[in-house]
Design a protein around this nucleic acid. Structure first.
Lengths: 107, 107
DNA sequence: TTCGAATTTCAGTTGCTTCTTACGTAAGCA
DNA sequence: TGCTTACGTAAGAAGCAACTGAAATTCGAA
């Protein structure tokens, strides 16, 4: 989970995921979207995403087609949601406790 | 936003945020929760979180009290939500397009 | 088999992250 | 004033991350 979080912390990798979310795309096409780095760099980003299990690779002849692993993306979002809602729950509990205290003082 | 994402990509920093989410806590107490690193390391994590605007600092005499910047946390979550829902939207559009194509073929 | 295209992998550089130890500083107390 | 507590900051080690350019791999085509 930590690997995935680190993977999406990079804007280039988020952009790659965006490209391959709704349809698969060959590595070259992905690389063409980035004018400031080499293909090699993109290939390495793809490798990071693959290790984080955030993309799937399919070979078709000469090419390698990538697409986002939506299941894993959803799992990551669930993890984040739980993290946030856990925090908000504690905040709520703390607010209620403070309220209780106040009422006790004034009652 | 990127700074914030990188900040929460670290499990120790997520744990710190969890500690100070619902109530403020002095640096020493925060550090005491971590038995495997020095106080200095925690201080540096706090500095990373502060630069990401994810925590607020308040000085009280000798001490420095930290608490999560909930507004910023919410903003970060919103950003992530938009990222995900953007992806799911594209996925939906792509699925509909594929469906349309299929119907055209068969019609 | 030989060539070219698509793509990864390797080697090397540069810069960032995380950590430790040591030091600096400000507030509070004797 | 001098000591202690609660911190941050500096300096340096070790490891990791992001790149580039060159070499290797793998497939399709001639």
């Amino acid at each position: 989970m930590d690997t995935a979080l680190k993977a999406i912390a990079d804007p280039r990798r988020r952009e790659i995921l965006r490209l391959v979310w709704s349809s698969e795309m060959p590595a070259t096409d992905i690389a063409l979207h980035f004018h400031d780095v080499t293909r090699s760099a993109i290939s390495q980003h793809l490798s990071v995403l693959r290790q984080a299990n955030l993309i799937c690779e399919r070979r078709a002849g000469n090419r390698r087609l990538y697409r986002a692993n939506v299941e894993e993306m959803v799992r990551l979002r669930t993890f984040l949601d739980q993290y946030w809602s856990g925090g908000l729950d504690r905040l709520k509990t703390a607010a209620e406790a403070a309220q209780q205290k106040k009422e006790n003082r004034h009652g």
